[in-house]
């Protein structure tokens, strides 16, 4: 076979093949080098003290405990609000909605939300939550902003997994005399739980990586906040990403910035692995 191809074709084939291979190789090396560089610059500065204290002007030490806690607070508040709303929205689209036009408009709106840049969310969050609802620059205002931002993610993944719940499950429940809500609560949602978890993890990833939407809503403070402070207005606090930005851009403290970047890299690896595990479970459920 091979001999029948003309020399010109063989050369073009070889060029195209090597283009594909080298593009993949370049990106592969680029990412590995980048991750390696971040760890190389950041890891030496990650110490027990760095992770468990707040920055102190007097002792001239930096610590990122406030930022770690703020990130966790914002994740918990956001997920607690967005999860019921997003799952509810997906249930409506998949189980209740009978008007096709309404579904189309809702899906269009969800796609629009997904496409809005985070800096615009930051601005609108500031207008709505910080000013209009007078929450002040606070963790709670930041979390509420992120609720709007992560809603499309939760709706989409939940909807995907609701679609895979076999129709016969619902029919079986109805045949036994169960009401609609009872069926959803006891049959449909439990079968879709893996997809809901995937959506949750994806949302957590989005929240952890977010910075532009939080700059003007959650603020830039580095004070230690208790969980009780976190849900009150006017308690500003920066997450890990915002603190990275502040250390790098405003203070020129690149050692600390790289250390935070290394921590963020670890978190995103953990999130990636969790998504994979959740999705694998999801797939296995489908095969059953």
């Amino acid at each position: 076979m091979r001999e029948k191809i003309s020399a010109k074709r063989r050369i073009i084939n070889a060029i195209l093949n090597s283009l594909v291979f080298s593009a993949a190789l370049i990106i592969f090396v680029l990412v590995i080098l980048m991750a390696g560089y971040i760890l190389f610059r950041g890891l030496p500065h990650i110490t027990g003290e760095f992770l468990t204290t707040k920055p102190s002007m007097v002792r001239e030490t930096v610590g990122i405990l406030p930022n770690i806690l703020n990130t966790i607070y914002i994740i918990i508040i956001t997920i607690m609000i967005v999860l019921p709303l997003g799952v509810g929205g997906a249930v409506y689209l998949q189980e209740y909605a009978s008007n096709k036009k309404a579904v189309k408009v809702i899906e269009l709106a969800t796609e629009t939300l997904a496409g809005i840049p985070s800096i615009i969310y930051g601005l609108v969050g500031m207008l709505i939550f910080v000013q209009f609802f007078t929450l002040g620059t606070s963790l709670i205002a930041g979390a509420l902003t992120l609720v709007i931002m992560t809603l499309p993610t939760v709706i989409r993944t939940t909807q995907e997994s609701l679609k895979t719940v076999p129709q016969s499950y619902r029919e079986g429940a109805f045949a036994l005399g169960a009401g609609k809500w009872y069926t959803i609560r006891t049959v449909v949602l439990p079968s879709a739980v893996d997809g809901i978890i995937t959506g949750c993890i994806l949302a957590i990833g989005r929240i952890t990586g977010e910075s532009a939407a939080l700059l003007f809503t959650a603020g830039m403070a580095n004070e230690l906040l208790s969980p009780l402070d976190a849900v009150q207005s006017d308690n500003a606090g920066s997450t890990l990403t915002v603190s990275l930005y502040m250390y790098a851009k405003e203070r020129g403290d690149f050692e600390t910035a790289f250390a935070v970047a290394a921590v963020l890299l670890f978190i995103s690896v953990i999130i990636n692995v969790s998504v994979k595990i959740a999705k694998n479970k999801f797939k296995r459920g489908e095969e059953k």
């Binding site: 990106i27 592969f28 990412v31 590995i32 980048m34 991750a35 560089y37 971040i38 610059r41 990833g205 952890t208 990586g209 977010e210 910075s211 532009a212 990403t241 915002v242 990275l244 930005y245 790098a248 851009k249 690149f254 910035a257 790289f258 970047a261 963020l264 890299l265 995103s268 690896v269 999130i271 990636n272």
Partner: peptide, 19 residues
């Protein structure tokens, strides 16, 4: 590797770009 890439926060890209 591509998944890792999409999970890296934008400020980290900014930092590496800066340095």
């Amino acid at each position: 590797v591509i998944e890792l890439m999409s999970g890296i926060p934008s400020v980290v890209y900014g930092l590496v770009g800066m340095i």
